[in-house]
Simulated scan of single mutants.
Amino acid sequence: MKDYRSLKHSKWYCKYHVVWIPKYRKKVIYGQLRKELGSILHELARQRECVIEEGHLMPDHVHMLISIPPKYSVSQVIGFIKGKSTIQVARQFFGKQRNFAGDKLWARGYFASTVGLDENVVRAYIRHQETEDRRYEQMGLFK
Rank of each mutant, 00 (worst) to 15 (best):
M1E: 14
D3K: 11
D3W: 08
Y4C: 04
Y4L: 08
S6W: 15
S6Q: 15
L7N: 15
K8N: 15
W12R: 05
C14V: 14
Y16I: 07
V18L: 04
V18K: 04
W20L: 09
W20R: 14
P22L: 15
Y24R: 15
I29R: 09
G31A: 13
R34K: 13
E36L: 07
L37R: 04
I40V: 06
I40W: 10
L41W: 01
H42T: 02
H42N: 08
L44M: 14
L44C: 06
E49R: 06
C50I: 03
C50E: 03
C50V: 05
C50N: 02
V51P: 01
I52C: 02
E54N: 08
G55W: 01
G55Q: 01
L57C: 03
P59F: 06
P59E: 07
V62N: 00
H63T: 01
S67I: 00
S67M: 06
S67P: 04
S67F: 03
I68N: 07
I68Y: 06
P69S: 00
P70A: 00
P70S: 00
K71M: 05
K71D: 10
Y72P: 02
S73W: 04
V74H: 03
Q76T: 04
V77D: 04
V77A: 02
F80S: 02
I81W: 02
K82V: 08
S85Q: 09
I87E: 08
Q88M: 10
Q88Y: 06
V89H: 10
R91I: 06
Q92H: 06
Q92V: 03
R98G: 05
N99R: 11
A101L: 15
K104A: 05
L105K: 10
W106Y: 12
R108Y: 12
G109E: 11
Y110A: 10
T114Y: 09
D118A: 08
V121D: 14
V122R: 05
V122C: 07
R123Q: 03
A124Y: 09
Y125M: 14
Y125I: 09
H128F: 09
E130Y: 11
T131R: 11
E132K: 15
E132W: 14
R134M: 04
Y136M: 15
E137I: 12
M139R: 13
M139Y: 11
F142Y: 15
F142S: 10
K143F: 11
